[in-house]
């Protein structure tokens, strides 16, 4: 187990370092320095040089890189060039909002995934079955952001049930917070729910067709008991692995959903930073995003490994 982890670590670290170099060089090497992009074609060189100095872009590249990389590790990210505010604090607050959204949508994914999966594997009548398939195909095909907009139109504009956007922290006032959270979490989580549901359906079908369940049924065990006590526990481990993989997808999707619902998370910070040419924040965020993605991938691989002995043995061989 541990050795598997250790084997994967260098690759992960290398990917992170490579990412940081690429992201860093994008600013340094692109035609036209950031300062001249900001100032435009009519700017005289002196003004560009002055702005570069203020942005800290006049020092040797290697120094810039090591200073920046040290900051990334220690969390001392400096101040935003645009507003002068400390970047670490900005990111910390926004990360709270994004994590809240991602966790809530994970709950939506798990709940709807279970509902879809179990229903699809157990409902046998043709009409409900077809409806279920149709619904899941539709949700699968509709981009998350489209679903979000349709939810706003239905529940914030046509029926004024929920707020169209914004956030109230869930922990500060759960009753209000959840009303802000509901639509973005559903918009973000439902798509993954269908994916997980399809997977669960396949697993369940496989389990239910296993012979021993037939035997159990013959012995007079109720269908319900067969499902809950036998089929589901066996189908769960691979489904959990899929769920882990979806976490990465949810984090990426959150960036767009945040824009639709004006959810003040990292995605919004990123979009604003891009809009304002706040390079430092963009560089920091991209590297942190990649770190989180790789960590999520590692953890879900680990879970997979711990559930599937072949992977682990392979690693120790």
């Amino acid at each position: 187990m541990l050795s598997y982890f250790i084997r994967r670590l260098p690759t992960a670290a290398l990917t992170v370092i490579l990412t940081s170099v690429v992201v860093f060089l994008l600013v340094g090497l692109l035609p036209g320095s950031p300062a001249s992009v900001i100032l435009g074609e009519q700017a005289d060189p002196a003004a560009v040089a002055a702005l570069e100095e203020r942005m800290g872009l006049d020092r040797p590249l290697l120094w810039q890189y090591t200073d920046w990389a040290r900051g990334l590790i220690t969390g001392d990210l400096g101040a935003s060039y645009v507003s002068g505010a400390p970047i670490a604090e900005t990111l910390g607050v926004a990360a709270g909002a994004t994590v809240e959204l991602a966790l809530a949508s994970l709950v939506v994914t798990a709940v709807t995934g279970a509902a879809f999966g179990i229903a699809a594997a157990t409902v046998r009548r043709r009409v409900p079955q077809a409806l279920l398939r149709g619904a899941s195909a539709l949700i699968f095909g509709v981009p998350e952001y489209v679903l979000g907009i349709l939810l706003i139109l239905a529940f914030a504009i046509t029926v004024r049930l929920l707020p169209a956007g914004g956030r109230e922290p869930l922990l500060a006032d759960p009753g209000i917070g959840i009303q802000y959270l509901a639509m973005p979490a559903i918009a973000l989580g439902l798509h993954s729910g269908v994916v997980v549901g399809r997977f669960l359906e396949t697993e369940l079908r496989g389990q239910l067709e296993e012979e021993y369940l037939d035997t159990a049924h013959a012995k007079g065990v109720s269908a319900r008991r067969v499902l809950w006590r036998h089929a589901l526990p066996n189908a769960l481990p691979p489904v959990i692995t899929v769920l882990g993989v979806r976490v990465g997808h949810l984090l990426g999707g959150a960036v767009v959903i945040e824009a639709v619902f004006a959810w003040p998370g990292l995605g919004q910070v990123l979009a604003n930073a891009v809009a304002n040419h706040d390079y430092l924040i963009i560089q920091d965020l991209v590297v942190y995003f990649v770190v989180v993605f790789i960590a999520v991938q590692l953890v879900s691989d680990l879970i997979h490994a711990s559930l599937d002995p072949r992977v682990r043995l392979d690693g120790e061989a």
């Binding site: 990917t15 990426g252 960036v255 767009v256 891009v274 991209v286 990649v290």
Partner: peptide, 12 residues
């Protein structure tokens, strides 16, 4: 390791 929208943000 780059989610596509993050790549888009970096390029934009």
């Amino acid at each position: 390791a780059f989610p596509t929208v993050i790549l888009g943000a970096a390029l934009a």
